[in-house]
């Protein structure tokens, strides 16, 4: 199983987590990022809301950046296993868009490294998401889109 992965289909969270189990590690920390829909705002008398998120990536740079983050983690912490998986394309509300699994002999490094991984993904991996609303879309972080109210 590849450990650093960009996928266009639903993330198999169970397989990624159990893939981290190993006899020399007593702690497996997971972080799963799921798509969140904030409460809709009223626009011209109707409640607008996010229908889904859509992700795109600059590949293969994004794949390599995931691997780089894995290498950074191995330099900083004693870990037995690191897996980072990000999904692209349409992701419906409540579905996983990113999964991070770190196994370590003890819990401290596992927790710290998984937190580090999500912060680094948000910092250096060339992936972008747009919120697709009932009345248009907006690129998160750029505030560029087709919604009249943005």
């Amino acid at each position: 199983m590849r450990l650093f992965l960009i996928v266009e289909e639903p993330i198999d969270v169970g397989a990624i987590v159990t893939g981290a189990f190993r006899p020399d590690c007593g702690a497996v920390a997971t972080f799963i990022g799921t798509t969140r829909v904030d409460e809709g705002a009223e626009v011209e008398g109707a409640i607008a809301s996010v229908e889904y998120l859509e992700y795109e990536a600059y590949r293969p740079m994004a794949d390599r950046k995931l691997e780089e983050i894995g290498a950074e983690i191995r330099e900083r912490w004693e870990v037995g296993h690191v897996s980072l998986v990000h999904r692209l394309g349409r992701v419906d509300p409540g579905e996983p868009s990113v999964a991070i699994v770190v196994a370590s002999p003890r819990r401290g490094p596992a927790f710290e490294a998984s937190r580090y991984a999500i912060e680094r993904i948000k910092e250096i991996v060339p992936i972008w998401k747009r919120e697709v609303w009932s009345d248009g879309y907006v690129w998160v972080g750029s505030q560029v889109g087709t919604r009249s109210v943005e």
Binding site: Y58, I127, W128, G141
Partner: peptide, 10 residues
Amino acid sequence: VAVLPPVSGG
């Protein structure tokens, strides 16, 4: 050359 807006993965 790739033109990259602020990344927003996760």
